[in-house]
C-alpha cells in the first residue's frame, strides 16, 4: 500500500493563538481518517494546510507533492467538499461539467452524467436553483468522475436531509471501495461516520488528544455498567466520565483497569461519540 498523505509536525500560529500544534499523521490507501474536534479545535486550519491554502510550519506531502508549491499538479488527485457551497452559482450543471472536462485531465464526463442521471439533478438546471443536498451531490459526482486519490470532506452532510445523506454516503462508499484511495472526514456527527472510519485524529485547542486506528482505540477504553454500591471502588480507577442511570452508573475507564472492573458490572464497548465527549470534557 502506498502512503497518500504524510504530515509531519504541522503547526499553525496566528498572532495570539496557536490553531494547530505539532500534528503528525500518515494515511495509506484504504484508510479513512476521522478528524474530530469542536469548532476552533484546529480542524479547519489543518485542512487548509493540507489543501495548500494556508501557510504553516512543518512538512506536508499529498500524493508525494507539496500542496503549496505544486498545487496545480496535486489537484488532479486531491479534492475537497465542505459544508459551504463553492460551486459557481451562475453556471448550469451542463456548463460546469463541460468546464471540468476541459481543464481536468482525468475527468470522465459520461461517468458524471451517468451518476447524475440517478438523481433529481437535471443538466439544464442552474446551480443556484439546486437545493443544498443537490449541490453537494453534484460536487461529489464531479469528484467521483475524476481520478481523485485523496478526498477531504469537511462537515459534508451539514444541513442535508436524510435522503440526500443516504445517497451521499452510498456514492462515497462505492467510490471508495473501487480504488486505492484515502479519505479524511471532519464532522461533528460522530455517530454518522463512526463505522466508516479506520483511524481517528481528535483535536482539542489545536493539540492531538487521541490518535490511532479504531481497533486500538476500542482496546484503550471500556465502559462498565456498575451498581451504585461500587461507586467508591470505581472512583479509585480515575474514571474519565460517568453517566448515571436507574440503579446503576456507566463509567468510562481506561483499559488498564479492565481486570479490576470485570466483576463490578457489565462491560460495554464505548462508541466513538462517548469517547469523544469524554475527552473533550476532560481537563476543561
Amino acid at each position: 500500500m502506498s502512503t497518500l498523505v504524510s504530515a509531519a509536525h504541522i503547526t499553525k500560529k496566528y498572532q495570539s493563538t496557536t490553531a494547530v500544534k505539532d500534528v503528525s499523521f500518515e494515511l495509506q490507501a484504504g484508510q479513512v481518517l476521522g478528524l474530530l474536534g469542536h469548532n476552533g479545535a484546529g480542524k479547519s486550519s489543518l485542512i487548509g494546510a493540507l489543501l495548500g491554502s494556508l501557510s504553516h510550519q512543518g512538512e506536508i506531502r499529498v500524493c508525494g507533492l507539496n500542496p503549496v508549491s505544486q498545487r496545480a499538479q496535486l489537484m488532479s488527485n486531491l479534492a475537497y467538499i465542505s459544508d459551504v457551497n463553492v460551486l459557481p452559482e451562475w453556471m448550469t450543471v451542463a456548463q460546469i461539467l463541460r468546464y471540468t472536462s476541459g481543464v481536468h485531465p482525468s475527468f470522465d464526463i459520461s461517468k458524471a452524467k451517468q451518476l447524475l442521471s440517478s438523481t433529481q439533478i437535471a443538466l439544464s438546471k442552474k446551480i443556484s436553483a439546486l437545493s443544498k443536498g443537490m449541490k453537494v451531490q453534484l460536487h461529489l459526482s464531479i469528484i467521483i468522475a475524476t481520478d481523485t486519490k485523496v478526498l477531504i470532506l469537511d462537515e459534508p452532510t451539514l444541513g442535508l436531509d436524510l435522503i440526500y445523506r443516504d445517497t451521499f454516503y452510498r456514492h462515497l462508499i462505492e467510490w471508495f471501495h473501487d480504488g486505492e484511495r484515502a479519505l479524511i472526514i471532519a464532522s461533528h456527527e460522530v455517530n454518522e461516520i463512526e463505522h466508516l472510519l479506520t483511524d481517528v485524529l481528535m483535536l482539542k485547542q489545536g493539540k492531538v488528544v487521541l490518535q490511532g486506528d479504531m481497533d486500538s482505540l476500542h482496546a484503550q477504553y471500556f465502559i462498565v455498567d456498575a451498581l451504585h454500591q461500587h461507586q467508591e471502588v470505581i472512583k479509585q480507577m480515575s474514571p474519565i466520565s460517568s453517566q448515571a442511570g436507574l440503579g446503576s452508573t456507566k463509567w468510562l475507564l481506561k483499559s488498564q483497569y479492565r481486570s479490576q472492573a470485570e466483576g463490578l458490572g457489565e462491560i460495554i464497548n464505548p462508541n466513538l461519540q462517548e469517547i469523544f465527549i469524554a475527552l473533550q470534557k476532560e481537563g476543561v
Binding site: R71, A72, Q73, V86, E89, V103
Partner: peptide, 17 residues
C-alpha cells in the same frame, strides 16, 4: 465574494495559467 474561488482552485490549473 461569491465563494467560487475554492472551486476554481480545486482544479488542476496553475495560478499563472
Amino acid at each position: 465574494q461569491e465563494g467560487s474561488l475554492m472551486f476554481w482552485r480545486s482544479m488542476p490549473v496553475s495560478d499563472l495559467q
